[in-house]
Measured scan of single mutants.
Amino acid sequence: TTYYDVLGVKPNATQEELKKAYRKLALKYHPDKNPNEGEKFKQISQAYEVLSDAKKRELYDKGGE
């Protein structure tokens, strides 16, 4: 599973699309609303952290993490 899959976006997604997808999923899986989905929330946050940063995203796209 790639970070793009976690957020449900395509690899060519814009920053705005990433932000929108992250917010939607973060609300859905937030531990306050969904106590059993803490791990999913962490995955979503990690994916967004990497993909929202241009340098980290470039490194990730080249095969790094």
Rank of each mutant, 00 (worst) to 15 (best):
T1R: 13
T1K: 13
T1A: 12
T1N: 14
T2Y: 10
T2M: 06
T2W: 08
T2C: 15
Y3F: 08
Y3E: 01
Y3S: 01
Y4P: 00
Y4G: 01
Y4F: 02
Y4I: 01
Y4R: 01
D5T: 07
D5Q: 06
D5V: 05
D5L: 05
D5F: 05
D5S: 07
V6F: 06
V6D: 05
V6L: 13
V6P: 00
L7C: 01
L7H: 00
L7F: 02
G8A: 04
G8L: 05
G8P: 00
G8T: 03
V9A: 03
V9R: 00
V9P: 00
V9K: 01
V9W: 00
V9G: 00
K10T: 12
K10N: 10
K10P: 12
P11C: 10
P11Q: 09
P11L: 06
N12P: 02
A13P: 02
A13G: 02
A13T: 05
T14C: 04
T14W: 01
T14M: 03
Q15W: 10
Q15V: 13
Q15L: 14
Q15N: 10
E16D: 12
E16A: 11
E16P: 06
E16I: 07
E16N: 07
E17W: 03
E17M: 07
E17I: 05
L18V: 11
L18I: 15
L18M: 07
L18T: 01
L18N: 00
K19R: 13
K19W: 15
K19N: 14
K20I: 14
K20S: 14
K20A: 15
A21C: 04
A21V: 05
A21F: 02
A21I: 04
Y22T: 01
Y22K: 01
Y22E: 01
Y22C: 03
Y22Q: 01
R23S: 13
R23K: 13
R23Y: 14
R23C: 15
K24P: 02
K24M: 12
K24F: 11
K24E: 15
L25T: 02
L25I: 04
L25W: 03
A26W: 15
L27V: 12
L27N: 13
L27M: 13
L27A: 14
L27E: 15
L27P: 04
K28I: 13
K28V: 09
K28L: 15
K28T: 09
K28F: 09
K28R: 09
Y29H: 06
Y29K: 01
Y29V: 04
Y29F: 08
Y29S: 03
H30N: 11
H30A: 09
H30M: 07
H30T: 06
P31W: 05
P31D: 07
P31G: 10
P31R: 05
P31N: 08
D32V: 11
D32R: 09
D32G: 09
K33D: 08
K33Q: 12
K33Y: 15
K33M: 13
K33R: 14
N34C: 09
N34L: 06
N34E: 07
N34H: 09
N34W: 07
N34K: 06
P35M: 06
P35V: 08
P35E: 08
N36H: 12
N36Q: 13
N36G: 13
E37C: 14
G38N: 12
E39V: 08
E39A: 10
E39N: 08
K40E: 05
K40Y: 11
K40T: 07
F41M: 06
F41E: 02
F41A: 03
K42W: 12
K42G: 06
K42A: 13
K42T: 10
K42L: 13
Q43C: 11
I44L: 07
I44Q: 01
I44A: 04
I44M: 04
I44T: 02
S45D: 08
S45L: 15
S45E: 15
Q46E: 15
Q46A: 09
Q46V: 12
Q46G: 05
A47K: 00
A47V: 03
A47P: 00
Y48Q: 01
Y48H: 02
Y48C: 03
Y48E: 01
Y48V: 02
E49N: 09
E49Y: 12
E49M: 09
V50M: 05
V50K: 03
V50E: 05
V50G: 02
L51A: 01
L51I: 03
L51P: 01
S52N: 06
S52I: 11
S52H: 07
S52L: 06
S52Y: 06
S52P: 00
D53E: 04
D53V: 04
D53F: 02
D53T: 04
A54T: 10
A54I: 14
A54N: 09
A54D: 10
K55C: 13
K55W: 08
K55I: 12
K55G: 10
K56P: 02
K56R: 13
K56V: 05
K56M: 12
K56A: 10
K56H: 06
R57Y: 02
R57S: 03
R57Q: 03
R57V: 02
E58P: 04
E58C: 10
L59Y: 09
L59I: 12
L59D: 13
L59W: 13
Y60N: 03
Y60W: 03
Y60R: 03
Y60M: 04
D61Q: 03
D61E: 04
K62H: 11
K62C: 10
K62D: 06
K62A: 11
G63W: 14
G63N: 13
G63K: 10
G63L: 14
G63D: 13
G64L: 15
G64I: 15
G64D: 13
G64E: 14
G64Y: 15
G64Q: 15
E65W: 12
E65L: 13
E65P: 11
